[in-house]
Design a protein around this nucleic acid. Structure first.
Lengths: 239, 239
DNA sequence: GCAGATTTGTGCGTATGTATC
DNA sequence: TGATACATACGCACAAATCTG
């Protein structure tokens, strides 16, 4: 009965969530190390003072997160690359809870120009068609007054796909989804018809660069574009 | 009894993992939508033909992943931002299982130069001291023949920290951890004493740029550095 | 406010398959 | 061949939160 490990409804989270925190801390502190065998479920449930069901919910989560692996008849072990999995979890936690608007746009500033660079190098005829169609659709939608910001985003997503790098394109998608969050609505551009036309114009220029395989030019163009918005935003924050 | 949902030990994964896949597919197909209430645990366990305990392991994982949220007395619901959580999961899956060596280095190529750019702009005296100490330590270690690749990595990690962007620095850490994986050992540079000295020399140049707040120069320098290695690697792969 | 129904949260007992000695 | 330890899975019971009338 290790008093330090006892958990009880202090806060409002569930028991399994508390156990997860405790186990992660044990790992971070180095008390449990990669490859280590951890105590059996019955013993753990006893020392944490909860049922085996609740404990198993925690262990299952940690297993699916790449922290632990269990083998019937053998026991439960820390994986050899716990640290890798921990870092992945921290990346996700940062994206989910800790990221500021500035950081998110800085991340776009970092990856979107390079994605366009790769896209310009690797663009296939089919992908060019996709971009052209997306742009046409946006133009028509503006005329019909049915344009949504989703259409503009589609253009960037196609560029990400054409760049043929799953890590970067998935990151861009996550960043963009995060930026749609209500936390940040205060910063949404006012979508004046003027701004819309500017966006379409931008996309036309970008598409032209990509079609001509002018990788460096499109990279610089997008960088400057996002950087302008970023600097404008930083001024607003200072006020 | 919906036959399509029945799961049985076809493969070797656990029951809860099968349920997770089924639920995620329902969401991807749009059968369940953001904010929807899903059937109760008893009912779900019945239609999936498993116990409530095993089902709960699946639900708990999905809850901690930001896909679902449960309220005692009310029920279990898809979160409003399921899609955001799904994309985060896909980013992790890509990092974990799908990423190639080329993609990982392309990602470094994309973020590390910009991190150094931010670091040069934002470097504090204390952070400069950290970098100087890290470099000194590496130099001494080379003389003593006790140098490890970890020491070289420390220098880059400090730059990441100084850049003051948690998303990018956490991503860089994850990427680097992934590159340490045994999958990629075949591509590890042969650490000749010549290569070591070159690395130290690089770091000295980088540190000098950062101290002088020459953000653009350090960015270009690192970009070219990684790009050279990337192009070399692409040639090796072609052979 | 109260009683009853519903639903998640938690606990306990037990059976089974697997690995080790 | 046991005997033991362990994870996997099931079933039942009850507590706590929530909704309805």
């Amino acid at each position: 009965m290790e008093g330090a490990d006892l958990i009880r409804p202090l806060n409002k989270t569930t028991l399994s969530e508390e156990v997860i925190k405790i186990i992660l801390n044990k790992i971070r502190k180095g008390q449990w190390r990669p490859g280590d065998k951890i105590p059996g479920e019955v013993s753990l449930a006893e020392s944490f003072q909860l049922s085996r069901n609740s404990l198993r919910e925690a262990l299952k989560f940690l297993e699916l997160s790449g922290i632990l692996h269990s083998r019937a008849g053998k026991g439960t072990f820390l994986t050899e690359d716990v640290l890798k999995s921990l870092h992945r979890m921290e990346l996700i936690e940062t994206l989910k809870n800790d990221s500021t608007l500035i950081e998110l746009i800085e991340t776009r500033l970092t990856i979107e120009p390079q994605l366009a660079y790769f896209a310009a190098e690797r663009m296939s005829p089919e992908n060019i068609k996709k971009l052209e169609n997306s742009l046409e659709k946006s133009k028509k939608a503006i005329e019909d007054n049915t344009y949504t910001t989703m259409m503009g985003w589609e253009f960037h997503k196609f560029i990400g796909e054409a760049a043929d790098n799953k890590i970067l394109s998935n990151l861009l998608i996550s960043i963009t989804e995060e930026l749609k969050d209500s936390r940040f609505t205060y910063a949404h551009d006012i979508i004046s018809s003027e701004a819309l036309l500017k966006e379409i114009e931008d996309h036309e220029i970008i598409l032209e660069y990509i079609k001509n395989k002018e990788a460096k030019k499109v990279k610089n163009y997008i960088y400057d574009h996002i950087n302008n918005r970023l600097n404008w935003l930083k001024k607003q924050v200072k006020k």
